[in-house]
Amino acid sequence: MSKSLSCAFIRKFMMIGLCSFLVLGTAGCASAKRDFQTHAQINDPLEPFNRGVFAFNNVLDRFLIEPVARIYNAMFPDFFRDGVQNFMRNLRSPLIVGNNVLQGDFKGAGIATARFAINTTAGIGGLIDVAAAQGLEYQPEDFGQTLAVWGFGDGFYLVLPLLGPTTLRDGTGLVVDAFADPVRLYAFNRDEEWIYYTRGLVEGLDTRARLVRAVEDLRRNSLDYYATVRSAYAQKRRALIRDQNPDKPPMATEQYGEFDYYDSGWE
C-alpha cells in the first residue's frame, strides 16, 4: 500500500469512526439494560455484508494464510515463535500503558511499564518475557477497551477484510491505536514504512499460527461458523474489558457483574 493510499484509507476510516461516536454514546447509555441478549451478543445490522466479507476472509485464510501459518509452526521451534510473540508484545507496551492510564487503571499501567523496562533490558530487547516469571503477566489493552470503560457500547458488529471480526467501537479503537502507535510514528517519520507493515504482517502471522487448532475445531464443530465466531468474539472482548486474569474472579461471575448469563438466559 502506498503512503497516500493508506493515508486516504485511514482518514476515511477515522471519519467514520468519529461520526459514529455520537451513535456509540447513546448505545452506551442504553446498555444499562441487563439481559442476555445485550450481554452475550453483539448487534449485527450489517449481517449480510459482514457474512460476505467473512466468506472472503475464509477463502483467503484457507488457501493462503492458514497454510503459511502451518508452515511457520512446523518450521520454527517453540522458543523461536515465543520470542517473536514476546518481541511483538513488548513493542505494544507504550500503547498498553497509555490505554491503562486513560482507563484509570494505574496499577495496570505500572505493571505494563515495569514489564517494558524489565523485558527490554533483561529480556534482551523484549525477546524473552522475564517479567511474566516475576508475576507481571501480560495484559493486553487497546483503545476499544478504553472506549468501553468510558461507557461506549459495541455499536455494531463489523467484519473487516483481512483483519476479521471487530465492532464499530473496537474498529475505531484500532484506528486510534494505529495513530498513537510509536512504531508507526517512528517508521513513518523516517520514511521507512516497511517497518510498520512488516510488523503488522508478523503480528498477524503469530496470532493466526497460535489459533490453528482452535480455528480448525470451530470450523468442524459449528453449524453456522459465522455466528459461532461472532459469539466467541463478543465473549472474548467482554472478558478483556473486564481485565480477566487468573487472579481475578472467573469469567462467569465477573463477565456481567451481577448479571448471571446462565440464570437469565432461558428466554
Binding site: A40, Q41, S222, L223, D224, Y226, A227, T228, R230, S231, A232, Q235, K236, R238, A239, Q244, M251, A252, Q255, Y261, Y262, G265
Partner: peptide
C-alpha cells in the same frame, strides 16, 4: 473465557 453453552446457543439460534 468463552462459554461453550453461550457459543453453541448463538450457533443454533443462527
Amino acid at each position: 473465557n468463552v462459554s461453550m453453552s453461550v457459543t453453541q446457543r448463538a450457533d443454533f439460534d443462527a
